[in-house]
């Protein structure tokens, strides 16, 4: 830790989308702000900054979390996957289905929706409509593409199961 200045800085080493990263941040810096401001990963968005909207959803060691409610320091030694990491090799089937279903309006909430939906599908390949709604109910969409997003998740699930039609 270096002394002086406005804040004591904390050195944090973490894996982000498969790459090792080291950043020096003050203790109060959230993972969300560190991703956006220190690492240039602006795909995770800031809206409420208090865990209510889901725009900042990332995977921390494979689990969906609100990056605005995680201190960057806590992620030291851990693995973070952001929406950029999900789509490193082009659009995923899930992202394509978001487009096909007309789920993308202004788009601001969409990265968070995509991460939450991906997390759901990894744990539950055949979610019911009710399970999809429940799994995503921490992700607000003011354009209210909710029903379109549900369709996108259903279509992705079907596609992953190899269903036709």
């Amino acid at each position: 830790m270096s002394a002086g200045g406005l804040h004591d800085l904390q050195t944090v080493a973490l894996t982000v989308n498969g790459s090792e990263r080291t950043v020096a941040v003050p203790a109060h810096r959230t993972l969300l702000d560190a991703l956006r401001d220190e690492m240039g990963l602006t795909g995770s968005k800031t809206c409420c900054a208090e865990g209510e909207c889901g725009a900042c959803t990332v995977l921390l060691d494979g689990r969906a979390v609100n990056a605005c409610l995680v201190l960057c320091a806590e992620a030291d030694g851990h693995e973070v996957t952001t929406v950029e990491g999900l789509s490193e090799r082009g659009l995923t089937d899930l992202q394509e289905e978001f487009l096909n279903a007309g789920a993308v309006q202004c788009g601001f909430c969409i990265p968070g929706q995509v991460v939450s939906a991906e997390y759901l599908l990894r744990g539950n390949p055949s979610p019911s409509e009710e399970q999809i709604r429940e799994a995503l109910s921490g992700n607000l969409c003011r354009c209210a593409g909710y029903q379109r997003i549900v369709r996108a998740v259903q279509a992705t699930a079907a596609r992953r199961r190899g269903d036709r039609g």
Binding site: T82, V83, E84, Q95, L99, V104, G107, I110
Partner: peptide, 11 residues
């Protein structure tokens, strides 16, 4: 499909 839609899904 929405113009610019892809970018809105990838961040």
């Amino acid at each position: 499909l929405r113009y610019g839609g892809a970018d809105r899904t990838t961040g």
